[in-house]
């Protein structure tokens, strides 16, 4: 003898609360003038080197702080902290950063009122795509040594990014990599992706990249 079954219809995103939480934090930071940039890539694509070059380019003309995420070590924070306020976030085992850890990092930095808060995510093109860190810009790095056929393999990451930086441009003569091909592949997924070619070590593309950041922040503050 079976009882009655009632179907309660819900139709709701399981992550709705987490997303709203991130959105509130995003607005809070914009309201006080901070543009948050989430930097993502495979391991070794040049995130930290890019941030070093960015900090050196601005040389104090913009205020910036960095939160660096890694499973272990504070190697990246050691490189950046002589240049700008930096906090290392160690996840222990998690392959991506999440908002609670970012909040702790912000607290550790004293919730600084800066023009730009950069979050250097854990090197991983998969999981960070699904986690909102309250960023205003998500920027994906692809280095010339990684092959120009990668965007199609990581659709969520490229779809959710606003800009793509092709890094290690100086190695182009030595690798079978086409900037046009990687850009086409990425723009099939996200037609509005801004793209830049960078050699952070030589300073190539850094001022264009920084000008882009300035423009994005200007737009952000105008609409806040």
């Amino acid at each position: 003898m079976t009882g009655l079954t009632q179907t309660v219809t819900v139709r709701r995103d399981v992550a709705a609360e987490a997303k709203m939480d991130a959105e509130l934090e995003r607005r809070r930071l914009a309201a006080r003038g901070t543009c948050v940039v989430n930097i993502v890539s495979s391991p070794g694509a040049g995130k930290t080197t890019l941030l070093e070059a960015t900090a050196r380019h601005w040389a104090g003309r913009r205020t910036m702080a960095v939160l660096v995420g890694d499973l272990e070590t504070d190697r990246d924070a050691q490189r950046l902290s002589p240049l700008v306020p930096t906090a290392q976030l160690t996840t222990g085992g998690a392959c991506h950063l999440e908002l609670p850890l970012v909040r702790r990092g912000l607290e550790a930095l004293g919730d600084p009122q800066v023009d730009f808060l950069f979050i250097e995510n854990v090197g991983n093109l998969v999981c960070p795509a699904s986690h909102d860190l309250a960023e205003h810009l998500r920027v994906v790095l692809v280095s010339t040594t990684e092959g120009d056929d990668k965007p199609g393999k990581y659709p969520k990451m490229f779809r959710t990014s606003q800009a793509m930086l092709v890094t290690k441009l100086d190695l182009l003569p030595y690798v079978p990599f086409s900037v046009a091909a990687v850009t086409d592949d990425a723009r099939r997924i996200q037609p509005e992706l801004a793209s830049f070619e960078i050699c952070a070590r030589d300073g190539v593309g850094i001022s264009e990249w920084c000008d882009h950041l300035d423009k994005q922040r200007e737009n952000l503050l105008a609409e806040t």
Binding site: V8, V10, R12, V14
Partner: peptide, 13 residues
């Protein structure tokens, strides 16, 4: 592009 909770069935015990 999300994990949606669509419905929950409840039964009288």
């Amino acid at each position: 592009d999300t994990l949606q909770l669509i419905s929950v069935d409840l039964q009288d015990t």
